[in-house]
């Protein structure tokens, strides 16, 4: 494998967890809910995924457990914010703090264990043998393909189907959607749980494929960056994918600059993704045309049906 191929390969793997978590959150925010609990859902996905894969010896059962772990935290979040109409910002923080603690507790027996059940890269006959693109695009592990398919699927459902229209209507004006007879709370429950499942999948990808082991707080702020990505994408799935790959590049850039022996403190390189997030948010917020038009109008507001 040549140097360039390796660079592109690692960029794609670093971008995938961001993309998976962010595409779920995009759907949640399109339905009008601000979920700040992604980091907690992701880290639960990581620990459940690693734990299940280690105990059962199957990476795929691990992936399933990761999805369930994220979805479970999302269920708690939706019960609070939808049924009990709590403040979404505070509840998201609670879910993140709870997820970080709970994952540490569940994961304590797994610290330092190597992952036995690894996920194998999928080799697509013929395509994988193409020069350059073959290795970079068609020799990835299965969850990378899942992330790409999810982006296409979400984009299609949100903008080309009736279900997507309803989700966006709920996000724009929950009162109008309610008056038209749509079950606002149920739709939001479904979107939040989908978002949690995606975050859980992103977490499982981290602990099963990206760094195949369990480390406390291993999500390292990726959940928060995913949130920023959704704002950056102005709630449009394809822009989200571009953003995710840009951020993956920033994440990897540091490692390569370090490997080349450039005398820059490693801490500065590690802080690049966080600095980039602030810069990206500032740039996109300056552009009012892009950011305001697509913002779901009911984002973050609680809804109680008037009877």
């Amino acid at each position: 494998m040549s140097g360039m191929e390796a660079v592109f390969l690692t960029i794609i793997t670093a971008s995938t967890p961001l993309l998976l978590a962010a595409i779920g959150e995009l759907v949640v925010e399109r339905s009008g809910v601000l979920n700040l609990g992604i980091e907690g859902m992701m880290v639960m996905g990581a620990v459940c995924g690693f734990g299940a894969a280690t105990l059962t010896g199957s990476a795929w059962l691990g992936v399933g457990a990761g999805i369930l772990g994220g979805a479970f935290m999302a269920l708690l979040f939706s019960f609070l914010t939808q049924t009990m109409v709590t403040n979404q910002v505070a509840t998201g923080l609670a879910i993140t703090l709870l997820g970080l603690g709970l994952s540490g507790l569940i994961g304590s027996p797994f610290v330092g264990l190597p992952l036995e059940a690894k996920m194998n890269a999928v080799h697509i006959p013929f395509l994988s043998d193409l020069p350059f693109a073959g290795k970079v695009i068609f020799g990835q592990d299965p969850l990378v393909y899942v992330s790409v398919i999810l982006v296409i699927l979400v984009s299609h459902v949100l903008f080309k189907t009736r279900a997507g229209l309803i989700i966006r209507a709920v996000g724009q004006s929950h009162n109008s959607a309610h008056a038209l007879g749509f079950p606002v709370v149920k739709i939001r429950y479904a979107c939040i749980i989908f978002g949690g499942a995606c975050s859980g999948l992103a977490g499982a990808y981290l602990s099963l494929s990206y760094t195949p082991q369990w480390i406390e707080n291993m999500t390292a702020g990726r959940g928060w960056i995913a949130l920023a990505l959704v704002v950056f994408s102005t709630w449009i799935p394809f822009r989200l994918a571009v953003g995710a790959y840009l951020f993956g590049t920033v994440w990897i850039l540091g490692l390569y600059v370090q490997a080349m022996g450039v005398a820059i403190p490693p801490q500065l390189l590690s802080s690049l993704p966080y600095i980039a997030t602030i810069v990206a948010l500032s740039l996109i917020s300056r552009n009012k045309r892009l950011s305001v038009v697509n913002t779901p109008a009911s984002l973050g507001k609680g809804f109680v049906a008037d009877r």
């Binding site: 109409v85 609670a94 709870l98 997820g99 603690g101």
Partner: peptide, 26 residues
């Protein structure tokens, strides 16, 4: 027992306080 229980207790506290606060207005 892992000292991670501290974080779990803290998270649960915030979770339950938000839950109970609903009944201030409803």
């Amino acid at each position: 027992i892992s000292d991670k229980t501290t974080q779990v207790f803290q998270g649960m506290l915030l979770f339950f306080i938000l839950l109970c606060d609903t009944f201030i207005l409803y």
